[in-house]
Amino acid sequence: MKPATFDYHAPRQLKEAIELLAKLPNAKILAGGQSLVPMMNFRYVIVDHLIDLGGLDELRGITLGNGLLRIGAMTRQRDLEVSPEIAKHCPLMSEALRHVGHRQTRNRGTIGGSLAHADPAAELPAVCAAYDATVHAVSVRGIRQIPFREFAAGFMATALKSDEMIAAVDVPIWRLGHGHGFHEFARRQGDFAITGAAALLDVGVDNVVRRATLTLFGVTASPLRVEAAESRLVGQPLDAGAIRAAAAAAWLIEPISDIHAGGEYRRHLAQVLSSRALNDAARRAGVTA
């Protein structure tokens, strides 16, 4: 259970990091290492070069402006979990983070690492899908902004090219007072979810839904926006019937089957968890449904 030999690089500047990534063969980026290092220990992943971003302070931090939160790729999950800005403007992320691994892994794990790893059952990619986040990919060729739905390319796959790495992610802010809901089912706290659901609701006068997103994760190769549910909600008054109808749209998905659960069971969970997430979101938006 020891990783194979590799050369270690600890750049002090982003420019140096992307030059190394462009130049070195079979190189990987080391962010928080909470997924990559286990895979290296198992020798699922064998690299010749590891480029550690731990020394790049410029990739850390949360800034608020222009209607969005910009989160540096190397911002630790724990720092996001306790951030007052995240709690205020992106409450879904705060809640989701409590389900991400354990305290010890959140102390090291980063948002950029989670997104690049792209586990289908991971929480942070689901949050980025829910808010229609934008990923900033950097390389020696420049910066590329990738909408999250294009970034999530498949099972543990992203739209990043081999010489690109994530520098930051932009999360558009919803109106203060929007409601959020996050539920997942896992056999133990901290395990990857078998299925999870994240809901966002913005409600206007007469309880009419102005915006709605419903995102499922752990059911398909990448986080899945349930557009049928969203279109059933927007423009309608929010009540128990509307939530039921929206959650029922989760029946339409085609979930994966694996050793953890069959597709039928996941479909059942998707509907139940969607309903819970939407109800929480409605309540937090000030609607008793």
Binding site: A10, G33, V37, P38, D52, G54, T105, R108
Partner: peptide, 11 residues
């Protein structure tokens, strides 16, 4: 708190 098996000494 961190897991010392998931961190390299050089880090």
């Amino acid at each position: 708190s961190v897991r010392s098996c998931l961190m390299f000494a050089v880090q």
